[in-house]
């Protein structure tokens, strides 16, 4: 048994909010550099140049990469031998978000009610997903998720007879319909299997995988490649200006499903695929 004071969680979450929004990951920067060399469209190349320059300015000046500093989504892997002390675990995380967004000059983008739409002014509440795992550590993953790309995401209850082709068509069509809206070049997270709610979570988790890393199963790695190629043949291109690079990566996460179902979800992320991890 290890005691961890929840005040530590508040501090760590506050730092993660800032870090994720100022510093684009090296995996994404490498993908953008590859895109700059691979893109044939002059307007598309200019977009890659601007995005790389943008990442440099954001890091140097500690200003958000994008003004949409997102909905604070936090994945927690809580070791079962951890004993949390010093207060309410959930509230400690919310306080971390509150502090991080306020101290970090990050935009407050959350409204209290979907219809009344009054801003909560501190970017809370965060969406928190908790898994209990063996061990005495806490792993936190912070994902600020932008609204523009979230709006272009979709869940579809496919039927088993639709097979792999049905999944690929659904993913490519979702990206095709989104066009320029979600700020391509995209990172496309695909959930496949599970239940209606599980598949959406799988799609979000797929966005956490470092760019350039494929699904461990060679079959699904092949499907990722096929989907990426088809998405990049749509011609949408960087920012929708036309080009050969519409997505930087497609990641699939798979889970068993019911004999009657074949759920699929597409969580679209813009090029600013932001996430940071900390282990306490």
């Amino acid at each position: 048994m290890r005691n961890i004071n929840v005040k530590l969680l508040t501090e760590v979450v506050a730092d993660m909010c800032k870090e994720a929004n100022y510093f684009l990951g090296q995996d994404v920067i490498a993908a953008l550099e590859k895109g700059l060399h691979g893109e044939v469209s002059p307007a598309g190349k200019e977009v890659f140049k601007q995005l790389l320059e943008n990442a440099r300015i954001a890091a140097e000046e500690e200003i958000p990469i994008c003004q949409d500093t997102g909905f604070a989504v936090i994945f927690v892997e809580l070791g079962q031998d951890v004993h949390l002390t010093g207060g309410d675990f959930n509230e400690a995380i919310q306080e971390g978000v509150r502090r991080g967004y306020t101290e970090g000059y990050l935009r407050k983008s959350i409204v209290k009610d979907p219809l009344e739409r009054v801003n909560t002014n501190d970017n809370t509440p965060a969406v928190i997903h908790i898994d209990i795992v063996p061990g005495d550590e806490i792993k936190l993953t912070f994902v600020p998720k932008g609204g523009g790309s979230e709006n272009m995401s979709a869940v579809k209850m496919l039927t088993p007879s639709q097979g792999a082709g049905g999944l690929v068509d659904f993913v490519v069509n979702t990206v095709n319909l989104a066009g320029a809206n979600p700020c391509p070049p995209l990172v496309v997270g695909v959930g496949f299997g599970g239940t209606f709610e599980k598949v959406a979570l799988l799609a979000k988790k797929a966005l956490l995988r470092p760019l350039g890393q494929t699904n461990a199963d060679p079959y699904y790695a092949g499907l990722e490649k096929e989907m990426l190629e088809r998405i990049n043949r749509t011609g949408i291109g960087p920012q929708g200006f036309g080009g050969r690079i519409t997505a930087l990566a497609v990641h699939i996460e798979v889970f068993p499903c019911h004999i009657a179902t074949m759920p699929a979800a597409v969580n679209i992320n813009c090029h600013a695929c932001r996430h940071v991890e900390r282990v306490i």
Partner: peptide
């Protein structure tokens, strides 16, 4: 655009386009 808040002494925060 809905910009992010400006740090003290700065003109504006991050300010790119929305959909």
């Amino acid at each position: 655009v809905g910009p992010s808040p400006a740090r003290p002494g700065r003109i504006i925060g991050s300010a790119g386009p929305t959909t």
